[in-house]
Design a protein around this nucleic acid. Sequence first.
DNA 1: TTGTACGCGTTATCAC
DNA 2: GTGATAACGCGTACAA
Lengths: 336, 336
Amino acid sequence: MTITIKDVAKKANVSIATVSRIVNNKPGYSKETEKKVLEVIEELGYHPNAIARGLISKRSHTIGVLVPKLSSMLMSEFISGIENIAHQFGSSVIICHTESNGKKTMQYLELLREKQIDGIIFSSEVLTEEYYQFMKKMDVPIVLLSTVSFDYPVPYVRVDDQHAAYTATEYLIKKGHRNIGMISGTKEDVVAGQPRIDGFTQAMDRNKLPVTNNIVAAPGFGYEDGKEAFKQLITQNPDVTAVFAASDELALGVISTAYQMDIKIPDDLSVIGYDNVSLAEMSIPPLTSVGQPLSTMGEKATEMIFEMINTNQSVESRIFPHEIVERQSVKELKKE
Amino acid sequence: MTITIKDVAKKANVSIATVSRIVNNKPGYSKETEKKVLEVIEELGYHPNAIARGLISKRSHTIGVLVPKLSSMLMSEFISGIENIAHQFGSSVIICHTESNGKKTMQYLELLREKQIDGIIFSSEVLTEEYYQFMKKMDVPIVLLSTVSFDYPVPYVRVDDQHAAYTATEYLIKKGHRNIGMISGTKEDVVAGQPRIDGFTQAMDRNKLPVTNNIVAAPGFGYEDGKEAFKQLITQNPDVTAVFAASDELALGVISTAYQMDIKIPDDLSVIGYDNVSLAEMSIPPLTSVGQPLSTMGEKATEMIFEMINTNQSVESRIFPHEIVERQSVKELKKE
DNA sequence: TTGTACGCGTTATCAC
DNA sequence: GTGATAACGCGTACAA
């Protein structure tokens, strides 16, 4: 038997309306009745039922977050920021790990619709037509986190991947490297794949450095992917002096493989990663990486959701700055 | 304007009762009306409102998960398993990162109560009196994941930490090590601290190996903690040939510091970690570790929650087996 | 300042 | 087979 507002009202000899006012700090009651009701509430251990409230207010105080199951390092930092802000706004967060599987994503979206969530942070895959149409019908605020949409007017929070890749490459070049390899994602990946490749080639081009057999596209962004890709890279281009990896796990893979091949990092080979997850500092040697303010980005995305909820109009997208976090995996190459 | 069961009923010229029956597959309607109603549902794009349903059924189809903000590596694997099963049961998961801060934990518990969640997986800190009493009043199933309670009858899912630590230590001893150091958690930590220390000393004792200055208690289980602790260990006991670290991150810290001190792993020093998170395989050299079936444990805990919900009675606790995952950070010590 | 009564969207219990 | 109608727990016009 859960105890309800009625029980309080009865015991306090007031109407449920009065109790409701007091609970919600709406004006319209005397100090005395307040005191009395508060006492009864305490005595009975009454607590409002958010479900019943939600039915009226049409707000569930819950937001949904769609993230890919992979790359959990990245996501846990995003989620940390998201949850932090959501909690400040008195809302909770439902995490949906989509394992970049279209079907499961749709299942989750249906779940979120049923639950009447107040907003969605979409951080998986690309925003496809199917997802977009579905969410649009749900009629709740959406923001894209570290993802892009093709043609739909959905605000996003991310870094400029191409620019970041450009910066990383140029960093390597400034350190004196000429023959630089890249372990990239796939070209089909319009978020973390092609743009970073573009940034890389752009930097190489502007510095009049050839890009012939320098790029190996890994099927994913994981550690094993990095190992395999590096083997291929070193085979097709044995003279590389530096590698730009499109993720930190990828970078760890190359470091590991290099270690096995007795290639010293950074003496024989410089390596720079991407994302600057906590892993990076734990690497041996500590990994220089392109840092994104992951937690902050998660926070901003969440703030945008609530702003959209409260103002009922869209907000501006936000590109966050990236930075090179220098550690010890890159070495300056002496001119000869 | 969300469209409701009423809209469907009106348009289909039936009562809302009939629509409800059809939506929920309750008997009591003809094939024809079913067809008609289904068409209207499709046409209008009607979807039941889980909040309204929850108000009646008293089930929110949501479970709450309390996890510490730290040790996110561990937690993300737990959560993966939890979410997987929860989704199979048609429920969603609210994650609450408690940052092992008593106040925030209570705030979250209050949030979960308001939201009328159906069950709680508690995986932070120790289950204190305060938490237990609160949750007990909520009157929902609870299971402890990788945690213990003092005296309360709450089912749990975990490994036998003491035994696992014993196994790890004995593994090192079998490899010929005699002077073995341990980087532990704090003694006050009755979950991952003292039990692992006990397992360690027990193994040492049984093998008649002295434990004098072999143990350094780190304040936490992180990378930096490991670095600091190892510095202390190597100072107070320069002859250690092997180290048992109470977490993988701790182990990475010792490997890193050892590397800086030009101590070769595993040639000069063997290291074994604990948890076997994904990090372990990415270490250089790959880290031998005591593995827990993290994802499976999360799954089991969740299954237990739903069993308790459905049967309305408690379930048995479950101790999962651990295993030594051999990689390359431990070397057999030659007898002299 | 306070109470009455209706509605939120749904399910369940009756009648018919 | 089908349809009113009363809950579920709460917020809020409106009236008093």
